[in-house]
Design a protein around this nucleic acid. Sequence first.
DNA 1: GCCAACGTTGGC
DNA 2: GCCAACGTTGGC
Length: 154
Amino acid sequence: MNYWLMKSEPDVFGIDDLAAMPRKTDHWDGVRNYQARNMMRDEMKKGDQVFFYHSNCKEPGIVGIAEVVKEGYPDHTAWDPKSKYYDPKSDPENPRWYMVNIKFVRKFDRTVSLQEMKQEKALEGMKLLQRGNRLSVMPVEKKHWQHILKMEKR
DNA sequence: GCCAACGTTGGC
DNA sequence: GCCAACGTTGGC
């Protein structure tokens, strides 16, 4: 099993929105970055665990856990001219963009903030903390995953 | 709201 | 294939 982190803006779609969905599940549409696309299409597997990260907000950080329940499949919003994610260059015969479905697992007791994570020696080298990182989907190492779970309980 | 960092686009 | 211009992300 692998571990991941996915970013979302709470004003647009936060962890509470995921928890409020039917079956607490939603498709992760709108990713228009090739690196993130490749991970969703090729690497994320059913049962993989996902940190849900709130970005672009007052207190950026990890707020809970979700789980991959459906592996990569074409992101149909790319073919919908009315969607804000419409990409005329994505051909249904040869889809350019992919998404996965994730299901709410649990919300953290508290937010493990970005600021806090930056100060942790044990999290050195974590992708999220690297300068200028803008990926909205990224892998998390098991040791980092476990350390963050400990931080939550402090 | 600012701005640094990064990805993409397109002219050459 | 280079690289300047532009758009977006996201912390602050």
